[in-house]
Structures are given as C-alpha cells and as structure tokens.
Amino acid sequence: MIAPQTLVFGILALLGLLSMVATYLAVTERDLVKAVVFSAIQSTAYAFMYYLLMAPDIVLVYVPVAVGLYPAVILFLIKKTERFEGE
C-alpha cells in the first residue's frame, strides 16, 4: 500500500520526467509542426503539475494560454513562413 503523499509526489516526478523528454524532443525536432506538438505535451504536463501543487489559479490561466493559444499562434506562424528548420 503506497501512502497518498508518496503517490502524489511520484506522479509529480513522472510528470517532470515526461515534460523533460517532451522538451528535449521539441528542441531537437527539425519539423516545426512536430516541435509544437511536443511543446504542447510539455505544457499539458506542467498544467497537471500546477494542479497537484495546489495552484488552481495558475491552472485556469495556463490551460487556455499554453495548451490553446501558444500552439495555435505558432502554427499560424509556421503556416505563413517555413515548416522545416534549416540544417
């Protein structure tokens, strides 16, 4: 039987690892559309993290901004410019 505190801290650590891998993939990916998707995964991990860290105000502002508006705006930008990062 896992204590609830250990469970919550474990989920926090897993979310941290997920966000780290997503950040690495987003920064190294050459296809910018895929990079935006990885960045959105990182944002989702952060949103859950804020919820578990007892910051509901931040969740309410972070979900529309970082999961909704950021990727949409960057996708607009990619559509108007170029999709692949140069070698």
Binding site: G16, L17, S19, Y24
Partner: peptide
C-alpha cells in the same frame, strides 16, 4: 520531490540550448 526539481533544471538547460543554439527563429520562440 528532488527528482521533480532536477527535471525542471534539465528543462531549463535544454530550453536555454534551444534559445541560444538552434538556427530557426520559430524554434527559438518555442
């Protein structure tokens, strides 16, 4: 909890590398 803090430090390092070293301006914004 320390693992969480360390992953955040790693994120800081990776994204700094992205801002400083990647050639594309869009990648820098991300």
């Amino acid at each position: 909890f320390n693992l969480l803090i360390m992953t955040l430090f790693a994120n800081l390092a990776i994204s700094l590398y992205g801002v400083l070293a990647r050639p594309s301006l869009i990648k820098k914004v991300i």
